[in-house]
Amino acid sequence: MGFGPLLLLAILEGAVTAAVLALTAVGLSLTFGIMRVVNVAHGEFFMLGAVLAWFVSQWFPDAPLLAFLLAMVVCPLVVAGVAVLADVLILKRLHYEPEATIVATIGLLYIFQQAALSFFGPNARPVAPPFNFRVQLPWFGYSGYKLFVILAAGVLLLLVWLLITRTKIGLVMRATQIDRTTAKAFGINVDRVYAMTFGIGAGLAAIAAVLVVPIQQAHYLMGGDPLLLSFIVVILGGLGSLRGTLIAALLIGLLDGLLSTAFFFPPTFAKIVATLLVALVLVFRPEGLFGRRTA
């Protein structure tokens, strides 16, 4: 295979990773940006989404398309509900103290993992993709579903952007993000905004998982990587910048693949170099690529 096709493949694969990552990270960006809490359980919301998608797929073993569409609706709603409960029952009582929240969300992480282990089991379980077609390029074959994932994630991100910039809910959320006290003074129910934000953030992680589970399988420990990568993407993009999050996701998704392809680095070495490069970007641009300079 020539260099061109290799590069194309690396870009396609990177784009799939980036698409899913962007969705997950946008969810985290909302809770992180608006509520100012470090939600360690965010990856577990992703995991719960994937696990629930598997359960939904078991109801309709012969109709994967129906199961997929249903999962796209049910999973984010259920996960958002769980998140809202967690917010009202726990985080709110902690007054969103950053440090207490970390401990509480680590606790939630354990609880969700045990729930998945007990009810779903320790195995990685596949979910059938809603449709099967393979795009045959001149040099290699590629999964049609993966192309769909890129498209679907793009549409969903657009919807989130519209929600935040063009609706009243978005306006209220942005107001709360900028100044909580003033928002309160203007009669905004901050408690409700927080619960909603936490729910939407978790729901976005869940929907990303529903998209990815036909390519990746559900597993009760799958939440770790999305959590770390989402954090990196959110900060690298710049807190509160949707555009930054998207571009950072692309960067994270593509960087090590491109390094590996273009410079023939061994893959693990490419990952090390990519990690250090991103860290250095932040060192010299602490506010992130598109964040506003605060200090």
């Binding site: 096709p5 290799l6 493949l9 690396a10 694969e13 990773t17 590629y142 990746q216 990587d225 893959p267």
Partner: peptide, 10 residues
Amino acid sequence: TETSFTRYFP
């Protein structure tokens, strides 16, 4: 840490 492998196959 890899969860996707297609790009290694070439």
